[in-house]
Amino acid sequence: MSQNNGYPFGFLDEYAKKEVRRSVLKAIALPGYQVPYSSREMPMGRGFGTGGLQLTLALIGPGEVLKVIDQGSDDSVNAVNLRSFVELTCPGIATTAKTEEASLIQSRHRIPEKALNDRQLLVLQVPYPDPLSVVEPSEDRRKAMHGEADYARLLVKLYEDIVKFKEITISHRYPTRINGHYIIDPSPIPRFDVPKLHQSAALALLGAGREKKIYAVPPYTDAVPIAFDDIPFRIEDFNDDQGRRRTCQRCGCQTSYLDEFIDSTSGEKLYQCSDIDWCNDQLTATQHLEEVDI
């Protein structure tokens, strides 16, 4: 057993890692089902991605390439901390900011813009795993509801939303039905990212450390956001008042998920790709094109 800083490879002991892996197998076998596991204490507060971290530590091995993102950025404090921790406890792994180079991507709030492939694994950090908790306080009753796919009350929420606001206002954690049965909370990714889970080539694993649940969207599996027949699900359109798609002010991309900034000098609203790696790629590509043009 390789030792590093007095800790076993992956920080967790072998028993803990095996338990996580067993739960992962069960989660893959029952797409969307929340598998309970005994979430370990990690040297950081629960709620800081410990559910995702335990998945990463239990699944990563020497030779693998890790990417960690938070809000689309590899450089935010949270992403840096998590990445350093894995590097420290898992000697022999490499890290990257490039989506296509990574074999394992741990993320909070975003799924990379670039489509993932079947050799990649996406780990999402989840604060609240159960989409039913907003309509049913009792966990026992929620379990029975999941078992019977008794999800009408989630649609009642959508109904009330449309009545009150004329549209569905859920921006994050959009309830999504996996493989035609269980409905999951897809973690705090925006609506924009939910379709990326549908029939994705990559396996997506979701881990909630505080709530001690692991669930999965296996590769090539249906992930369908709930909606009414006559009011379909739609993603954020990022259109301006004239109905024109906003563009990233940095790379000019017209298809990506945009973050909004206020320019501190002009007070103007600016938009930029939330996925920094994607933005960099688009920027290099356009610069390259310009060079070729000259």
Binding site: D150, L155, V156, Y159, I231
Partner: peptide, 9 residues
């Protein structure tokens, strides 16, 4: 909705 209708209008 419980009875299976999912057409808002």
């Amino acid at each position: 909705l419980v009875a299976g209708d999912s057409h808002y209008q």
